[in-house]
């Protein structure tokens, strides 16, 4: 079986891939473990300036793999806690993270997008946080999304659920760059090229300052979010709704 997460280094530019294309890179515990491991390695590479974050195949990431977790007691909680810790680890990477968002970034997948420094998508991409539609609470992503697009917009997006297209995500500020369909890779290459050539220390110190401005308690809020989210997933409303969705 091929590795669930891949890390490639090319000079000052890294590429971290979610590599579970047959499941649209849905975040299972195993995939999350692999991402934790690769992120840990990347954190020890100060010579690398930036990291492309990509999903193999047609979709960036379909979200949490709840289906597999629902039958095992405690598994949703472990999954949520792992996602929460991964977002914190991602945020604290010394490298500038650039999400290449193609096809779809849903739920937890879109949470990864919110925590990256720069996100790029294409016009017809499907993005969003449909958690409430499934009876689930997007509490882990909420602190990141509030920070990323502001509390007012985060309120509207998280309470309304559903998905939006790339153009709407760009208008909301969830992604920094929007391309036409088919032009995504070129745009991402251009951005990581600029970052790769820029001053590594300047990038790292600037990111460190911006992370300080996230506030001291953001990691605590994200962890608290994982607990809230796990409680909601375990409740009767979510169980009934998810059973309906997953048949």
């Amino acid at each position: 079986m091929s590795e669930l997460a891949l890390l490639e280094i090319d000079g000052t530019v890294a590429t971290l891939s979610l590599n579970r294309p047959d499941k649209r890179n849905a975040l299972s515990l195993e995939l999350l473990d692999a991402l934790h491991e690769k992120t840990g390695l990347l954190a020890q590479m100060p010579e690398v300036h930036c990291c492309r974050v990509v999903g193999t195949g047609n979709s960036f990431c379909a979200g949490m793999d709840l289906k597999a977790a629902l039958d095992t007691p405690g598994a949703p909680g472990r999954l949520l806690s792992s996602i929460a810790e991964l977002t914190i680890k991602f945020r604290n990477l010394p490298q500038v993270t650039v999400a290449r968002v193609q096809g779809a970034a849903i739920g937890g997948g879109c949470g990864l997008v919110a925590v990256c420094d720069i996100a790029v998508t294409h016009r017809s991409c499907k993005m969003g946080y449909p958690e409430v539609d499934l009876g689930v609470c997007p509490a882990v992503v909420a602190p990141w999304l509030v920070r990323s697009i502001g509390a007012g917009r985060a309120r509207r997006v998280l309470l309304s659920g559903g998905v939006m297209d790339g153009a709407e995500a760009y208008r909301l500020g969830l992604v920094a760059h929007l391309t036409e369909d088919g032009a995504l890779d070129g745009a991402v290459d251009e951005i990581v090229g600029r970052l790769g050539d820029a001053g590594g220390v300047a990038l790292r110190e600037t990111k460190r300052l911006l992370n300080d401005l996230d506030g001291e308690d953001i990691a605590a809020r994200v962890r608290e979010g994982a607990v809230i989210s796990a409680e909601v997933v375990d409740g009767p409303e979510a169980r009934a709704r998810l059973a309906e969705v997953y048949g």
Binding site: E131, G135, P138, A142, L159, G225, I228, V232, G235, A238
Partner: peptide, 10 residues
Amino acid sequence: HAVARTKAWL
């Protein structure tokens, strides 16, 4: 419940 919990968290 999911909506109310999300609003309370926000």
